[in-house]
């Protein structure tokens, strides 16, 4: 190619690029780190968010609450944090990870014992000690709020130590649900809202009420680069649409 043609092509390319529409001044993307059990409720709110902010996008990052806080501590670019227990939210607060004044309690939940469909029912926490129950799945108490709630229930009835050899620890509450649904364990501790998602594969056989109320809280992250949009998302979850979506899935009102 001669130099002249090359120069002409480059000029044409630059001119073409200049014609491309500039990125919209309003388009932003927020990252919402939320406890695994909130997955379906938040996904249900996506259309409402899009209706209010058609130029913007929201990305959900789902895992156990402690894992999410560890990510935020290490500088992950998160805008909103929703936790399944107050203790983790308090830790976030003490570490100054939350934007002041943005923390809200948005839902409550119940802990239940589930068994695989077709397996023998486990009628109470004490029934877990039976020899017929070989494996029980709980979230890992070190990183999963559902695991800590389960440990609380088991410690209150004095069964925690006795159950140690049978316990299978999961990375988050949805993994507990998966273990039960697959029949790899004989029973598991999940939230009532999670159990309701798989009625054809797991059966709720007992309530597991504990001393600590299960409360979900949400807040804007202090280092968020889109605080206004993040606050708008928190308002959405805390508002009538959020309550309706959470209520439809079985969450309780705070």
């Amino acid at each position: 190619m001669t130099t002249r043609i090359r120069v002409a092509l480059s000029a044409a390319l630059v001119a073409a690029l200049a014609w491309l529409p500039p990125p919209s001044a309003h388009s932003a993307e927020i990252v919402v780190s939320a406890a695994s059990s909130l997955a379906d409720a938040l996904e249900a709110l996506r259309p409402a968010f899009f209706a209010r902010h058609p130029q913007d996008a929201v990305v959900f990052n789902l895992a156990a609450s402690d894992v999410l806080l560890a990510q935020i501590d290490r500088g992950a670019p998160v805008d909103v944090f929703a936790s399944a227990d107050e203790a983790t939210m308090d830790r976030a607060d003490r570490a100054h990870r939350l934007a002041p004044g943005t923390r809200r309690i948005v839902a409550t939940n119940r802990l239940v014992i589930v068994v695989p469909k077709g397996a023998a029912a486990v009628g109470s926490v004490d029934a877990l000690l039976d020899a017929t129950v070989r494996r029980v799945a709980v979230g890992s108490p070190a990183t999963v709020p559902a695991g800590r709630y389960a440990r609380g229930v088991l410690e209150a009835s004095g069964a925690w130590q006795a159950l140690q050899p049978k316990l299978v620890l999961a990375q988050n509450v949805r993994q507990v649900l998966d273990y039960v649904a697959r029949g790899e364990v004989d029973a598991g501790f999940v939230y009532a809202t999670d159990a309701a998602l798989m009625p054809d594969r797991v059966v709720v056989t007992a309530d597991a009420p504990g001393v600590v109320p299960i409360r979900y809280s949400i807040a804007v992250v202090a280092d968020s680069r889109h605080k206004a949009l993040a606050a708008a998302f928190v308002d959405l979850v805390d508002g009538p649409e959020g309550r309706a979506a959470l209520g439809r899935l079985g969450f309780g009102r705070p």
Partner: peptide, 12 residues
């Protein structure tokens, strides 16, 4: 050990 490292990092 690999899983223990993963868990330790996530538990802070």
């Amino acid at each position: 050990i690999s899983i223990a490292i993963y868990e330790a990092v996530h538990a802070g």
